[in-house]
Amino acid sequence: MNTKYDLIIVGAGALGTFHAYHAMQNGLKVALLEKDKAPISATVRNFGQVVPSGMDTKWQNYGRESLKIYNEIQSTFDISIRNNGSVYLASNNDEVRLIEELHQINKGNDYESVLLTKQQCLEKYEGLKDDYVKAGLFFPQEVTVEPRVMINRLLEYLINNKWLEFYNETKVVSCESKGDKVTVVTAKNKVFEASKVIICCGSEFKTLYPEVFEKSDIEVTKLQMMQTKPQGNYKLNGSILTGLSIRRYEAFYECPSFNEIKKNENPDSLEKKWGVHILFKQATDGSVIIGDSHEYADAANIDDLGFYLNMDIDEFMLAEAKKIFNLPTFEIQNRWFGIYSQCKNHDIFQHTIDNNIHIVTGIGGKGMTGSAGFSKENILKIFNKN
Rank of each mutant, 00 (worst) to 15 (best):
H19K: 06
T57P: 14
L380F: 07
G243L: 04
I246R: 12
L208I: 05
E34S: 04
T117E: 02
V212R: 00
Y296I: 08
L305W: 08
M1Q: 14
S293E: 11
N356H: 15
F213R: 00
E331V: 04
G291P: 09
I105W: 07
N46Y: 04
T329K: 13
K129L: 10
M55F: 04
I240H: 01
H19Q: 10
H351S: 09
L98N: 05
F330Q: 01
V143P: 02
I8K: 11
F166H: 14
T144V: 10
G306M: 08
W336I: 01
K107W: 02
I79R: 13
L241C: 03
R153W: 11
I79G: 07
F192E: 12
L155Y: 10
T117L: 01
F205V: 05
N237A: 03
L122F: 06
S269W: 10
I379W: 07
A372S: 13
Y249D: 12
E377M: 09
W274V: 00
M1C: 03
A90Y: 03
I105R: 11
V220R: 07
Y157C: 06
E295S: 12
Y308F: 14
F316V: 01
A297E: 15
K206Q: 06
I359F: 05
A321F: 04
T329R: 11
K281R: 09
R97G: 13
C343I: 03
A187V: 14
N83H: 12
C175H: 12
Y62M: 13
T284S: 13
K235T: 02
L223Y: 00
K273W: 10
Y340V: 07
N26R: 04
W59N: 14
N160Q: 14
E169V: 07
G54N: 15
V10A: 13
I302N: 03
M24W: 07
E204H: 12
K107L: 13
L270Y: 04
T57Y: 15
S80R: 12
G27T: 00
S80H: 10
G179Y: 10
K129S: 04
P230R: 15
L102C: 07
G365Q: 01
A372K: 04
F325Q: 04
F330I: 00
G243C: 05
K181Q: 11
Y62T: 09
Q231A: 13
H19D: 03
I278V: 11
C121F: 00
E204M: 08
N266K: 05
T352H: 06
V182Y: 14
E65F: 00
E101A: 07
L115R: 11
L15D: 02
E250I: 14
K263R: 15
I40F: 10
V133H: 13
A31D: 03
F349E: 08
G370R: 05
G63Y: 04
E377P: 01
D180S: 15
I9Y: 03
G13R: 13
D78M: 01
A299S: 12
W163F: 05
N386R: 09
S269T: 09
